[in-house]
């Protein structure tokens, strides 16, 4: 890698990415506070964006449960995400899990519904494991959906799924939620292409989402 590229990488960490492979992900956590709760599991799935239409590559998918050393479990949340204490203890050591995750995502841009939450948990987990944070660019699907359907008042993933008639095999299972989120992206795609003026690059998608954010709600 040339000095210039490395320098550019420092200055513009989100610039270099795999344009044809986007990764949609979802995390399960021990609670709803991204600054204090623990990362329990990550599921991710690749969406191929080159060619006539985006395609969810089912075989190019990933899941991992992170080993938890904390013995006290939040029972209430276990009922929601379904990862029991046993499964949490049997998970993969966080450093290995996150290394696998980074290998899986490669240089792909990362997408999630309410991405800030997923990003915060993953980046915090990297810090805790004394690992480099992944520098992949992030995109929140929620404002993108709002930009494509400006009149729809949906906020949560459940509301968007209901509005766009997407079904989920097992809600609050990271893998199933990820597929539903990827399906949401596929459904938004034609409208997003129109809004972006004919071609939806990752940068264009980010512009669309950002533009929506600044509009008065």
């Amino acid at each position: 890698m040339s000095l210039l590229r490395r320098l550019a990488g420092r200055l513009l960490p989100a610039a270099a990415h795999d344009a044809g492979r986007w990764v949609v992900l979802d995390v399960e956590s021990s609670g709803l506070n991204p600054n204090s709760d623990r990362l329990l599991a990550i599921a991710a799935i690749a969406v191929r964006t080159e060619g006539r239409q985006p395609r969810i590559a089912l075989g190019d998918s990933f899941e991992v449960v992170l080993r938890q050393d904390v013995s006290v479990a939040d029972k209430h949340n276990i009922l929601l995400h379904g990862i029991g204490v046993g499964a949490q203890r049997q998970g993969v050591a966080p450093a290995a899990a996150l290394a696998d995750f980074k290998r899986f995502i490669g240089h792909s841009p990362l997408l999630a519904f309410h991405a800030a939450f997923d990003a915060a948990l993953i980046l915090r987990a990297c810090d805790a494991a004394r690992m480099h944070r992944p520098r992949n660019p992030w995109l929140d699907i929620e404002p993108l959906a709002a930009a494509v359907y400006p009149t729809v008042k949906s906020r949560s993933l459940d509301q968007w799924m209901a509005t766009l008639q997407i079904s989920c095999a097992v809600r609050h299972q990271a893998a199933a939620d990820t597929l539903a989120t990827a399906e949401l992206l596929l459904k938004l795609w034609p409208g997003a292409v129109r809004e972006a003026g004919g071609e939806l690059t990752f940068a264009a998608a980010r512009r669309l989402a950002a533009q929506r954010k600044w509009l008065p709600q």
Binding site: S61, V65, D100, F104, Q173
Partner: peptide, 15 residues
């Protein structure tokens, strides 16, 4: 909700 099938040694691909 069903728990993901955790494997102790490695993460899984495909999911």
């Amino acid at each position: 909700p069903a728990a993901p099938q955790a494997s102790p040694s490695a993460s899984s691909q495909p999911s």
